[in-house]
Lab assay of single mutants.
Amino acid sequence: RLHIEVEGTELMKKLVEEAKRRNLNVRAKVENGKWIIEID
């Protein structure tokens, strides 16, 4: 499991799109103003 903290929506969208393209499980949520992304 990969755990990433990202500031900025554009970067988050790119990460999520790339993960979906590779058929990975992606969860994204906002915590303290940062995107928290978990990829399995």
Rank of each mutant, 00 (worst) to 15 (best):
K13Q: 12
R22N: 07
V30L: 15
D40Q: 09
N32D: 08
H3R: 15
V30A: 12
K34W: 10
M12C: 15
L11F: 12
V6Q: 04
G33E: 04
E10L: 11
E38A: 06
R21Y: 05
K29E: 05
I37W: 02
V30D: 05
V26L: 06
K34Q: 06
I4T: 05
G8N: 14
A28W: 13
T9S: 10
H3P: 07
V26Q: 00
D40G: 11
K29C: 09
L11A: 13
M12K: 02
L24V: 03
H3I: 15
R21N: 04
R27W: 09
E10A: 11
A19N: 01
K34S: 05
E7P: 06
L15T: 03
V26I: 07
R21D: 02
K20T: 10
A28N: 03
E5L: 11
K20A: 07
G8Y: 11
R21I: 06
L11R: 09
R1K: 12
D40W: 15
N32G: 10
K14I: 12
E38G: 01
R22H: 09
E7G: 08
A28F: 14
E5W: 13
R21E: 03
G8I: 12
R21L: 07
V30N: 14
E10Y: 08
K14V: 09
E5I: 15
I4Q: 04
E31I: 14
N32Y: 05
I39Y: 04
K13L: 14
A19Q: 02
H3V: 15
E5K: 08
I39G: 02
L24P: 00
E31A: 10
D40Y: 15
G33I: 01
D40H: 07
M12R: 02
I37E: 00
K13H: 10
E17P: 01
R27G: 01
K13P: 01
R27D: 02
K29T: 13
I39R: 01
K29M: 09
W35V: 04
M12V: 07
R1T: 13
V16C: 12
E38W: 13
H3Q: 12
I39M: 05
R21Q: 07
N32E: 05
G33M: 03
I4D: 04
I37D: 00
K29A: 07
I37T: 01
N25M: 12
K20Y: 07
E5M: 11
E10F: 09
A19G: 04
I37M: 01
R27F: 07
N25T: 11
K14T: 06
T9W: 15
V30M: 15
K20N: 06
G8P: 05
A28S: 06
N25D: 04
N23P: 01
V6D: 04
E7K: 10
V26W: 12
H3A: 09
L15R: 01
K14Y: 10
V26D: 00
G33Y: 02
N25I: 13
R22K: 08
V16W: 08
L11D: 08
T9K: 09
D40S: 13
A19W: 11
R21M: 09
I36G: 01
R22V: 05
N23F: 13
E31R: 11
K14E: 07
N32R: 04
E17V: 06
E38N: 05
R22Y: 09
N32T: 02
H3N: 11
I39S: 02
I36A: 02
K20D: 02
K34L: 07
N25Q: 10
V6K: 04
V26Y: 07
E5S: 11
D40K: 06
L11E: 14
I36Y: 06
K34M: 11
M12Y: 08
K34P: 00
E17N: 10
E31W: 07
E18H: 10
V6M: 06
V30K: 15
W35P: 01
H3L: 14
W35R: 01
W35D: 00
R27T: 13
M12H: 01
A28H: 04
K13A: 07
I37V: 08
V26P: 04
G8V: 10
M12W: 10
G8W: 13
L15A: 03
K29H: 15
K14A: 11
N32K: 05
